[in-house]
Design a protein around this nucleic acid. Structure first.
Lengths: 356, 356
DNA sequence: CCATATAGTCCTCCAAGCCCC
DNA sequence: CGGGGCTTGGAGGACTATATG
């Protein structure tokens, strides 16, 4: 059993032989037109599903297309229509669950809408890589750009480049640069963080410590805000948040420090990886979750339900986020008025925050 | 502090005003030429860094370019050069660590080489989405295609489409379709799996059970092979592998079953998520790792060092994989002979497989 | 109603032109 | 006067849009 080569009996070979493909130049519309005995314009009509083509003619053209293995040259098409059918996506260059699933959702929605995505990842230092990626996108003729979950720096660069196409930010940036075409789509980070905090307080915690993500990330900022507001609303004291990175290793180190310096009754971690690291450090020192500390994370990444113990967390609607971003871009491309959108975040309660 | 709008004092506005940009049509080479008082050909030379342009002329042209905010139209360029500078990537549509980091590495290497990546994700049923993505890529004029970690189905479709550009498979497909331009780059899955198995046997296990991934995935197949070969080489019995999905949930269910039906002395899980699920199920039933069962995973995903207990696993060189794939494509594009490449997999020993 | 011809999109390649010594 | 360095003009390239038969 050879994996391929027999599935479609003889077809590829037929095609090649019949067309006498020289492998030098791919067939053009003119080639198809000649073979079908029509003008290239008619071929164009058939390819683009225009109405006014006789069924018989259409058939002949389609046959010729199949025979030659013709494929429309999108570069030439883009040249004249000024529509490339390509959207650019700027995404942070990491394997984090959030950006990854947002990207996937975006790709899904884009394909649905007939677009293809080109990707640029953001590397440090953000400034250079962002500008470079943006320029490549623009040269390629992207019709719009989506920027996933960025930081202050990225936002600034996007503002400076002054892209002649719509740009949508998928993040909780609260202060968008005042440019016509830059808008935002976000998950309600603040509400999610507040819900997590309230849940911990309702569970009997007299105080909630926040282990925060890097504060140049908008999402991290918003989670701090939501947590603080919930604490204040409940009238409990607001301990200084512990700022760190996004990784489990960062969480582990903070966990060790808390063991040394004293454990709070409850911790709200800025993401699930941080929570994972915290639990690891605590486990090593006999601190039990939820018995000794209540814990909530953020993201609901795939493994979260299987951590030790299963982690209470905030689920974000990444698919909805991607779809909303595409809608935003679609509106902007059609010249309709755009508006910011926010998506719900949902608290998922598991064992890490519930005693008993 | 408004995040942007002040960083580059006045520049964007100057540009727009001076150029009197109508916002109707982006400036073309001809516009630049006229403003600089040279022919469009000279502008082209400047843009492409050709040698024979007087420094003075070059300056004038550059000034005109800056003034107009000119950007080369890659569609027109692609039309004549037959080089789009775009590569297509087909990737499974999930958030799994492996494909994600491979993709990132690919993007990195591609950018380094001056290429941009367009993405298509594979959805079920693979056949349709693969063919659709491939056709979009080809229409766009991609110069090469990389396919990440696919299944039998994907491989078959790629073979049928008969892409007129080089295709590289990033996976352990052992039986590649016999077409000139399809080659492979792979991590040594089999060796990694064998190393994991030997490690478990050396740790005192009389037998190693394999919890396998979906067998239409090449990587899953290879891990089974490596495990089986190591068992046979050691002269221990080879229990039937337990085939399941890739997720922690799948692992959890298998874990429960093993508790009911009897635990083996050691388990080699096809990836870290499966191992996570196994540990969860076992923990619920008082089964201790590594005291009661030894466990090894595969991937070394970010959280693995912080699981309970920290997970012994096989680290794959995803970055190397991406770079190797790009080298492969580069060779094929330049007409040099290509050759398959394999990258090392490294066993990372942590607590889950070491007693005491 | 259907099909054709012609113009136009923006760029790169090729051949030829200019100038200066 | 002929040859190098610099520059120019014109011919595609594959397609769509706008008249025109």
């Amino acid at each position: 059993m050879t994996a391929a080569g027999e599935g479609a009996p003889g077809r590829p070979t037929d095609t090649e032989a019949a067309a006498g493909r020289t492998s030098a130049r791919p067939p053009s519309m003119a080639d198809v037109a000649q073979l079908a005995g029509v003008s290239h314009q008619t071929v164009s009509r058939v390819v683009n599903d225009h109405p006014s083509v006789l069924p018989a003619t259409r058939e002949r053209v389609l046959a010729a297309i199949a025979r030659l293995g013709y494929r429309r040259n999108d570069a030439a098409r883009a040249l004249v229509t000024r529509r490339s059918g390509v959207l650019g996506v700027l995404t942070p260059g990491g394997t984090a669950y959030g950006p990854t699933s947002t990207f996937l959702a975006l790709e899904d929605a884009a394909r649905e809408a007939g677009y293809v995505l080109v990707v640029g990842t953001l590397r440090l230092p953000h400034e250079d890589s962002t500008a470079a990626a943006l320029n490549r996108f623009l040269g390629l003729g992207v019709e719009g750009i989506a920027v996933i979950a960025p930081t202050e720096q990225v936002l600034r660069v996007v503002g400076e480049i002054d892209a002649p196409v719509p740009v949508v930010m998928l993040s909780s940036a609260t202060r968008l640069p005042d440019r016509r075409l830059v808008g935002g789509v976000a998950v309600a980070q603040r509400e999610g963080a507040a819900a997590a905090t309230r849940h911990l307080l309702a569970g009997g915690a007299s105080e909630v410590l926040h282990v925060a993500g890097p504060q140049d990330w908008f999402d991290a900022q918003e989670r701090v805000r939501g947590w603080r507001e919930a604490c204040q609303a409940a009238g409990v004291s607001v301990p200084a948040p512990v700022e760190t990175g996004w990784s489990a290793r960062d969480g582990y180190q903070v966990g060790l420090r808390l063991v040394r310096e004293g454990l709070p009754p409850a911790v709200f971690a800025a993401n699930d990886q941080l929570a994972l690291g915290l639990m690891h450090a605590w486990r090593e020192h006999g601190v039990r979750v939820p018995d000794d500390v209540l814990l909530v994370g953020f993201d609901d990444e795939p493994g979260a339900a299987h951590y030790a113990p299963p982690l209470t967390t905030v689920r974000q609607d990444f698919a909805g986020l991607g779809a909303a971003a595409m809608r935003y871009l679609a509106e902007a491309l059609e010249g309709r008025p755009t508006r910011r959108r926010a998506l719900a975040a949902e608290l998922v309660v598991r064992s890490s925050s519930v005693r008993g």
